[in-house]
Write a protein that binds this DNA or RNA. Structure first.
Length: 424
RNA sequence: GGAGAGAUGUCCGAGUGGUCGAAGGAGCACGCCUGGAAAGUGUGUAAGCUUCAAAAGGGCUUCAUGGGUUCGAAUCCCAUUCUCUCCGCCA
C-alpha cells in the first residue's frame, strides 16, 4: 500500500510512474486526495467536540464531588447534543476511511526509476547470462519421462492421494528434494541469513499483511473451519514476523531464510506449460527475506541477486537474469529480477526465482518501522524477498540437462547432500 | 473437547466509575558523582492522527479485539481472540 503522505505530497509522480506499470492512476489519486481532505475535516471537527466533551465530563465530576447536583445536571444536558453530533461524525468518518482504504489498496506499488517500460514478458531486459548450454544428442527426454524412467517422481500416485499437481517423490527423487533444500538453506545461512521454520498456515491478518488478501483470495487454499490459509510462499509467514514491529537502528540488517512447502490453487491452464514439474499445487521452496533501511535497500537487492546467482552457478545450470518490465511486474514490487534456467528437453527457460524490492509498500500495510538513530522518528522499513530457490523447475532442469545414457549426473556441489553423484 | 483463572506501557506490576496515558519497580538513554567502574543520584523513556503550531508545545485516539451502558470506562455489561491451570485426548 502506498503511503498517504506520498500521494498527498507528490500525486503527479505517482501517476507518472504507475504508467510504467500500464496503470492509469489519475482517477484513483484524485479520489484519494479528496477523501483525505474530507477525512481530515471530519477528524478536526470531531476532535474539537471530543475535547469539549472531555472538558464537560471533568466539570461534572467536580460538581458532583462538591455536591452541586443541580448544576451538574445542567451541564449534563449540554452534552446530549454534542454526543449526537460526535456519533454522526464518527460514522461519516468511518465511511470515508473505508472508502479511502478501498481505493488505496487498488493502487499498485510505484516502480523504481530503473524499471524498463514494457507490456509483456518479451519486454523484459536480460541483464546477465551464465552457465553452459548442455550439448545433448537428439534423444533427449523431458523430465516427466525421465521421472518415470528412473522411478523418482510419481504424478499418478499424487493424483490418487490428492489430485493433480501434487506429485509424490520417491527414492532418489525424494532424496534429491531433501538434498536441495538443505543445500540451499546451508548456503543462505553461510551468507548471513537466519533460518526460520514457520507455520504453513496463517491467519487472515497475516494474509492481509503481505497482500494476499483481500483481492488474491482465490490463489490460496483456505481451511474454512478455522479460517486459516495455506501459505503460497514462505514470504507470508516470514514477513509477517515483522508485522506491527518497530525495529531499532542496530537491528539491521535483518536477513531471514526459510524452507516451506508452498500451496497454490492457481487458475487451471492445461498443456505443455504445466506438464510435469512446471506448475504444481504443492511445491518446495527456500525463501530469503531482508528488511532494510530505505537507503540500503537497493544495495541489498543487488546482494540478493548475486547470492541467488551463486546458487545457480553451483548447480551448473545455464541461466539468465531478467529485469522485469513494468507490465510484467507484480502488483507489490518496485523492482524485480527474475531468474530463469534453461531446460534442455523442453527447450525453454523456466523461472526459478524472483527477487524483488518492495520498498515501503508492504511495510506500510504491515506497520513495519524502525526508529532512527536519534530515536525520535519512526520510519517505514523496506522489505525485499526472493526465492533461493524454488525446487521443481530446478529439478526439471537438472534432470533434462544432465541426462546421460548411464543416468543423471549430479552437480558436485550437492553430492555431499544427495549421497550419490549419479541418479540411476 | 470440559471446568476455572486471566490479558494493563520494553518488562514486572498497582489500579473496580471521575482530573489515569495510567502509581511503584526493573530495564534503557543522557547527566551528576568516580582516577575508572559498581553503588548512589537527577532527568527522560509508547504509537497513530492532527486545515492548532515555524518550533517548543497543544488537541484527539489507543490499558487483547469489537460492540454496549454512562455526562464520564483500564475499571461495569455482551461477544470474540489469545494465555495459563486442572481434566480428557494425543505424535
Amino acid at each position: 500500500m502506498l503511503t498517504l503522505n506520498l500521494l498527498r505530497e507528490n500525486p503527479e509522480l505517482v501517476i507518472e510512474r504507475l504508467k510504467i506499470k500500464n496503470f492509469d492512476a489519475k482517477k484513483h489519486v484524485e479520489q484519494i486526495i479528496e477523501l483525505d481532505i474530507n477525512r481530515r475535516e471530519l477528524q478536526f471537527e470531531s476532535d474539537a467536540l471530543l475535547a469539549e466533551m472531555n472538558q464537560l465530563s471533568k466539570e461534572i465530576g467536580i460538581l458532583f464531588k462538591e455536591g452541586k447536583q443541580q448544576e451538574a445536571n445542567t451541564v449534563k444536558n449540554k452534552t446530549v447534543e454534542i454526543k449526537e453530533r460526535i456519533k454522526e461524525l464518527s460514522s461519516k468518518s468511518d465511511e470515508v476511511n473505508n472508502k479511502l482504504n478501498e481505493i488505496l489498496v487498488q493502487l499498485p506499488n510505484m516502480p523504481s526509476v530503473m524499471v524498463p517500460m514494457g507490456r509483456t514478458p518479451e519486454d523484459n531486459v536480460v541483464v546477465r547470462k551464465g552457465g553452459e548450454m548442455p550439448a545433448l544428442g537428439n534423444k533427449v527426454m523431458p523430465h516427466w519421462d525421465l521421472a518415470s524412467k528412473y522411478n523418482i517422481i510419481d504424478f499418478e500416485l499424487g493424483n490418487k492421494l490428492t489430485g493433480s499437481g501434487f506429485p509424490v517423490y520417491k527414492g532418489k527423487g525424494a532424496r534429491l528434494q531433501r538434498a536441495l533444500i538443505n543445500f540451499f538453506l546451508d548456503q543462505n545461512i553461510a551468507a548471513g541469513y537466519q533460518e526460520f521454520l514457520p507455520p504453513y498456515m496463517v491467519n487472515e491478518d497475516s494474509a492481509y499483511g503481505t497482500g494476499q488478501l483481500p483481492d488474491k483470495e482465490g490463489q490460496m487454499y483456505h481451511a474454512t473451519l478455522d479460517n486459516f490459509y495455506l501459505i503460497p510462499t514462505a514470504e507470508v509467514p516470514v514477513t509477517n514476523i515483522f508485522r506491527d514491529v518497530i525495529l531499532n537502528d542496530s537491528d539491521f540488517p535483518v536477513k531471514c531464510t526459510a524452507y516451506t512447502p508452498c500451496f497454490r490453487r492457481e487458475a487451471g491452464s492445461y498443456g505443455k506449460d504445466v506438464r510435469g514439474l512446471n506448475r504444481l499445487h504443492q511445491f518446495d521452496k527456500v525463501e530469503i527475506v531482508q528488511i532494510q533501511k530505505p537507503e540500503n535497500s537497493y544495495q541489498a537487492l543487488e546482494e540478493m541477486v548475486n547470492h541467488v546467482e551463486s546458487l545457480i552457478k553451483k548447480l551448473e545450470l545455464p541461466y539468465r537474469i531478467l529485469k522485469l518490465c513494468g507490465g510484467d511486474m507484480s502488483f507489490t514490487s518496485a523492482l524485480t529480477y527474475d531468474f530463469e534456467v534453461y531446460s534442455a528437453a523442453q527447450q525453454r527457460w523456466l523461472e526459478v526465482s524472483s527477487v524483488s524490492n518492495f520498498e515501503s509498500f508492504q511495510s506500510n500495510r504491515l506497520k513495519l518501522r524502525y526508529k532512527d538513530k536519534s530515536g525520535k522518528k519512526t520510519i517505514l522499513a523496506h522489505t525485499l524477498n526472493g526465492s533461493s530457490l524454488a525446487l521443481p523447475r530446478i529439478v526439471a532442469a537438472l534432470l533434462e540437462n544432465n541426462q546421460t545414457n548411464d543416468g543423471i549426473l549430479m552437480p558436485q556441489s550437492i553430492v555431499p547432500y544427495t549421497g550419490f553423484s549419479i541418479l540411476d
